[in-house]
Protein backbone atom coordinates (compact mmCIF):
# COMPACT_ATOMS: atom_id res chain seq x y z
CA UNK A 1 0.00 0.00 0.00
CA UNK A 2 0.98 3.63 -0.32
CA UNK A 3 1.33 5.95 2.64
CA UNK A 4 2.23 9.62 2.51
CA UNK A 5 5.10 10.88 4.64
CA UNK A 6 5.62 14.64 4.63
CA UNK A 7 3.87 14.77 1.27
CA UNK A 8 5.99 12.04 -0.28
CA UNK A 9 4.28 8.87 -1.51
CA UNK A 10 5.94 5.81 0.00
CA UNK A 11 5.40 2.16 -0.66
CA UNK A 12 4.76 0.25 2.58
CA UNK A 13 3.89 -3.25 3.67
CA UNK A 14 1.04 -3.96 6.08
CA UNK A 15 2.46 -4.08 9.60
CA UNK A 16 5.70 -2.32 8.74
CA UNK A 17 6.78 0.39 11.17
CA UNK A 18 6.55 3.97 10.01
CA UNK A 19 10.16 4.65 10.99
CA UNK A 20 11.41 1.92 8.67
CA UNK A 21 9.33 3.18 5.77
CA UNK A 22 10.59 6.71 6.35
CA UNK A 23 14.24 5.69 6.52
CA UNK A 24 13.94 3.69 3.32
CA UNK A 25 12.66 6.81 1.66
CA UNK A 26 15.42 9.01 3.05
CA UNK A 27 13.11 10.86 5.36
CA UNK A 28 14.96 11.57 8.59
CA UNK A 29 13.28 10.96 11.93
CA UNK A 30 15.53 11.36 14.99
CA UNK A 31 15.89 8.45 17.42
CA UNK A 32 17.85 7.71 20.55
CA UNK A 33 16.77 4.33 21.85
CA UNK A 34 16.50 2.73 18.44
CA UNK A 35 19.14 0.56 16.86
CA UNK A 36 18.50 -1.49 13.75
CA UNK A 37 19.51 -4.62 15.60
CA UNK A 38 17.34 -3.80 18.62
CA UNK A 39 14.32 -1.95 17.29
CA UNK A 40 10.98 -0.88 18.68
CA UNK A 41 11.64 -0.03 22.32
CA UNK A 42 9.62 3.16 22.25
CA UNK A 43 11.33 4.60 25.32
CA UNK A 44 12.89 7.86 24.19
CA UNK A 45 9.82 9.05 22.28
CA UNK A 46 12.01 11.21 20.04
CA UNK A 47 10.65 9.52 16.93
CA UNK A 48 7.14 10.86 17.51
CA UNK A 49 5.21 11.80 14.39
CA UNK A 50 1.66 12.86 13.68
CA UNK A 51 -0.60 10.37 11.93
CA UNK A 52 -3.72 11.51 10.10
CA UNK A 53 -6.25 8.75 9.73
CA UNK A 54 -9.62 9.87 8.46
CA UNK A 55 -10.68 12.62 10.80
CA UNK A 56 -8.34 11.47 13.51
CA UNK A 57 -5.01 13.16 14.07
CA UNK A 58 -2.75 11.74 16.72
CA UNK A 59 0.80 11.58 17.95
CA UNK A 60 2.46 8.16 17.78
CA UNK A 61 6.00 6.84 18.07
CA UNK A 62 7.10 5.86 14.59
CA UNK A 63 9.45 3.07 15.72
CA UNK A 64 6.49 1.03 16.98
CA UNK A 65 3.49 2.24 15.01
CA UNK A 66 2.58 -0.33 12.37
CA UNK A 67 1.16 0.71 9.02
CA UNK A 68 -2.35 -0.68 8.79
CA UNK A 69 -3.95 1.61 6.26
CA UNK A 70 -3.20 4.35 3.79
CA UNK A 71 -2.42 6.99 6.37
CA UNK A 72 -0.76 10.35 6.10
CA UNK A 73 2.28 10.93 8.29
CA UNK A 74 3.80 14.27 9.26
CA UNK A 75 7.24 14.00 10.84
CA UNK A 76 8.13 17.60 11.40
CA UNK A 77 5.13 19.73 12.31
CA UNK A 78 5.49 22.59 14.70
CA UNK A 79 3.78 20.57 17.40
CA UNK A 80 6.19 17.67 16.94
CA UNK A 81 9.23 19.95 16.87
CA UNK A 82 8.12 21.60 20.07
CA UNK A 83 7.63 18.30 21.87
CA UNK A 84 10.93 16.93 20.58
CA UNK A 85 12.67 20.00 21.85
CA UNK A 86 11.10 19.47 25.26
CA UNK A 87 12.20 15.84 25.28
CA UNK A 88 15.76 16.77 24.45
CA UNK A 89 15.72 19.52 27.03
CA UNK A 90 14.55 17.01 29.64
CA UNK A 91 17.17 14.46 28.67
CA UNK A 92 19.94 17.01 28.53
CA UNK A 93 19.14 17.96 32.12
CA UNK A 94 19.15 14.30 33.10
CA UNK A 95 22.46 13.47 31.44
CA UNK A 96 24.36 16.74 31.11
CA UNK A 97 27.75 15.08 31.05
CA UNK A 98 27.17 13.27 27.80
CA UNK A 99 28.71 14.90 24.72
CA UNK A 100 26.02 13.22 22.76
CA UNK A 101 23.27 15.11 24.58
CA UNK A 102 25.22 18.35 24.46
CA UNK A 103 25.46 18.06 20.68
CA UNK A 104 21.76 17.37 20.38
CA UNK A 105 21.01 20.30 22.63
CA UNK A 106 22.97 22.58 20.30
CA UNK A 107 21.44 21.05 17.22
CA UNK A 108 17.97 21.88 18.50
CA UNK A 109 18.96 25.42 19.34
CA UNK A 110 18.56 24.89 23.07
CA UNK A 111 20.46 27.12 25.43
CA UNK A 112 22.28 26.10 28.55
CA UNK A 113 19.62 24.84 30.95
CA UNK A 114 18.75 27.30 33.67
CA UNK A 115 15.38 26.26 35.07
CA UNK A 116 15.39 22.48 35.28
CA UNK A 117 17.32 20.59 37.90
CA UNK A 118 20.49 19.47 36.16
CA UNK A 119 21.97 16.20 37.30
CA UNK A 120 25.71 16.87 37.09
CA UNK A 121 27.91 13.87 36.66
CA UNK A 122 25.26 11.85 34.88
CA UNK A 123 25.59 10.69 31.29
CA UNK A 124 23.14 7.77 31.06
CA UNK A 125 19.88 8.55 29.27
CA UNK A 126 18.28 5.22 30.22
CA UNK A 127 17.55 4.37 26.61
CA UNK A 128 17.58 0.71 27.56
CA UNK A 129 19.71 -0.45 24.61
CA UNK A 130 22.38 -2.01 26.84
CA UNK A 131 19.83 -4.13 28.68
CA UNK A 132 18.28 -5.20 25.39
CA UNK A 133 21.73 -6.04 23.99
CA UNK A 134 22.59 -8.19 26.99
CA UNK A 135 19.24 -9.96 26.74
CA UNK A 136 19.87 -10.53 23.05
CA UNK A 137 23.20 -12.17 23.84
CA UNK A 138 21.19 -14.28 26.26
CA UNK A 139 23.11 -13.43 29.40
CA UNK A 140 20.81 -11.12 31.40
CA UNK A 141 23.64 -9.72 33.51
CA UNK A 142 22.20 -6.21 33.68
CA UNK A 143 18.73 -4.80 33.98
CA UNK A 144 16.98 -1.63 34.95
CA UNK A 145 16.38 -1.45 38.68
CA UNK A 146 14.00 0.73 40.73
CA UNK A 147 11.23 2.65 39.11
CA UNK A 148 10.24 6.22 38.49
CA UNK A 149 12.82 8.89 38.99
CA UNK A 150 15.28 6.56 40.71
CA UNK A 151 15.47 4.11 37.82
CA UNK A 152 18.93 3.09 36.65
CA UNK A 153 20.80 0.33 34.88
CA UNK A 154 22.65 -2.02 37.14
CA UNK A 155 23.84 -5.53 37.82
CA UNK A 156 21.84 -7.35 40.51
CA UNK A 157 22.38 -5.58 43.85
CA UNK A 158 25.03 -3.45 42.12
CA UNK A 159 27.57 -6.21 42.71
CA UNK A 160 29.81 -7.75 40.05
CA UNK A 161 27.54 -10.03 38.08
CA UNK A 162 28.10 -13.75 38.32
CA UNK A 163 26.91 -14.36 34.80
CA UNK A 164 28.52 -11.45 32.91
CA UNK A 165 30.92 -12.76 30.24
CA UNK A 166 32.54 -9.39 29.64
CA UNK A 167 31.61 -9.29 25.97
CA UNK A 168 31.02 -5.54 26.03
CA UNK A 169 27.92 -5.65 23.83
CA UNK A 170 26.28 -3.20 26.21
CA UNK A 171 29.13 -0.70 25.99
CA UNK A 172 29.25 -0.92 22.22
CA UNK A 173 25.57 -0.19 21.78
CA UNK A 174 25.50 2.68 24.33
CA UNK A 175 24.91 5.95 22.45
CA UNK A 176 26.36 8.18 25.16
CA UNK A 177 29.44 6.22 26.15
CA UNK A 178 28.05 5.91 29.62
CA UNK A 179 29.08 2.32 30.18
CA UNK A 180 32.72 2.29 31.14
CA UNK A 181 34.78 -0.51 29.65
CA UNK A 182 38.51 -0.28 30.28
CA UNK A 183 41.14 -2.35 28.48
CA UNK A 184 44.69 -2.35 29.77
CA UNK A 185 47.60 -4.82 29.90
CA UNK A 186 45.54 -7.67 28.54
CA UNK A 187 42.71 -7.09 30.98
CA UNK A 188 39.19 -5.82 30.51
CA UNK A 189 37.17 -4.18 33.22
CA UNK A 190 33.43 -3.74 33.01
CA UNK A 191 30.57 -3.53 35.55
CA UNK A 192 33.07 -3.87 38.39
CA UNK A 193 34.45 -7.16 37.11
CA UNK A 194 37.92 -7.76 35.67
CA UNK A 195 38.54 -10.31 32.93
CA UNK A 196 41.82 -11.62 31.52
CA UNK A 197 41.90 -11.32 27.71
CA UNK A 198 43.03 -14.18 25.50
CA UNK A 199 45.11 -13.53 22.37
CA UNK A 200 43.71 -13.63 18.84
CA UNK A 201 44.89 -16.77 17.02
CA UNK A 202 45.48 -14.55 13.97
CA UNK A 203 47.48 -11.56 15.20
CA UNK A 204 48.16 -12.44 18.83
CA UNK A 205 46.55 -9.34 20.25
CA UNK A 206 44.47 -9.91 23.40
CA UNK A 207 40.83 -9.47 22.42
CA UNK A 208 38.37 -11.85 24.05
CA UNK A 209 37.55 -12.99 27.57
CA UNK A 210 37.69 -16.65 28.40
CA UNK A 211 34.00 -16.57 29.25
CA UNK A 212 33.04 -15.01 25.96
CA UNK A 213 35.20 -17.48 24.05
CA UNK A 214 33.38 -20.36 25.71
CA UNK A 215 30.09 -18.66 24.89
CA UNK A 216 30.97 -18.19 21.19
CA UNK A 217 32.21 -21.76 20.94
CA UNK A 218 29.02 -23.12 22.45
CA UNK A 219 26.87 -20.95 20.24
CA UNK A 220 28.65 -21.36 16.89
CA UNK A 221 30.42 -24.68 17.28
CA UNK A 222 33.66 -23.06 16.04
CA UNK A 223 37.06 -24.19 17.25
CA UNK A 224 39.06 -21.65 19.32
CA UNK A 225 41.55 -21.33 16.46
CA UNK A 226 38.75 -20.07 14.20
CA UNK A 227 37.59 -17.37 16.58
CA UNK A 228 39.40 -14.21 15.52
CA UNK A 229 39.48 -10.58 16.52
CA UNK A 230 37.45 -8.05 14.57
CA UNK A 231 40.38 -6.95 12.38
CA UNK A 232 41.50 -10.46 11.51
CA UNK A 233 37.91 -11.43 10.81
CA UNK A 234 37.60 -8.59 8.33
CA UNK A 235 40.91 -9.47 6.72
CA UNK A 236 39.88 -13.06 6.34
CA UNK A 237 36.58 -12.06 4.85
CA UNK A 238 38.32 -9.77 2.41
CA UNK A 239 40.74 -12.55 1.46
CA UNK A 240 37.89 -14.94 0.81
CA UNK A 241 36.22 -12.32 -1.28
CA UNK A 242 39.43 -11.88 -3.31
CA UNK A 243 39.62 -15.59 -3.90
CA UNK A 244 36.11 -15.68 -5.17
CA UNK A 245 36.56 -12.70 -7.43
CA UNK A 246 40.08 -13.56 -8.58
CA UNK A 247 39.00 -15.42 -11.69
CA UNK A 248 36.49 -12.81 -12.58
CA UNK A 249 38.93 -9.90 -12.43
CA UNK A 250 41.67 -11.82 -14.27
CA UNK A 251 39.50 -12.21 -17.31
Amino acid sequence: MIITIDGKQCEAQYGEYILDVARRNNIFIPTLCHSDALPGQGNCRLCIVEVLEGKRRRVVVSCSYPVKGEVEVLTNTEKIRKMRKNLIRLLAAAAPDSDFMRDLQREYGLEEEERFQVYRGEDCILCGLCVRACEEVGIYAISTVNRGITKKVSTPYAEPSAVCIGCGACARVCPTGSIKMKEENGRREIWGKTFALLPCPGCGKPFITREELAYVQAKTGLEPAEILCEKCRQKRAARKMRDVFKDVTMK
Binding site: G42, N43, C44, R45, L46, N86, L87, L90, L91, A93, A94, I125, L126, G128, T144, N146, R147, G148, I149, T150, K151
Partner: peptide, 13 residues
Protein backbone atom coordinates in the same frame (compact mmCIF):
# COMPACT_ATOMS: atom_id res chain seq x y z
CA UNK B 1 7.36 10.41 40.38
CA UNK B 2 7.83 7.41 42.61
CA UNK B 3 5.28 5.26 40.82
CA UNK B 4 6.14 5.97 37.19
CA UNK B 5 7.84 2.89 35.84
CA UNK B 6 10.58 5.15 34.52
CA UNK B 7 10.71 3.53 31.13
CA UNK B 8 9.88 6.45 28.87
CA UNK B 9 11.52 9.87 28.85
CA UNK B 10 8.57 12.28 29.04
CA UNK B 11 7.08 10.57 32.06
CA UNK B 12 10.27 9.88 33.99
CA UNK B 13 12.09 13.15 33.30
Amino acid sequence: AEESCGKCVPCRE
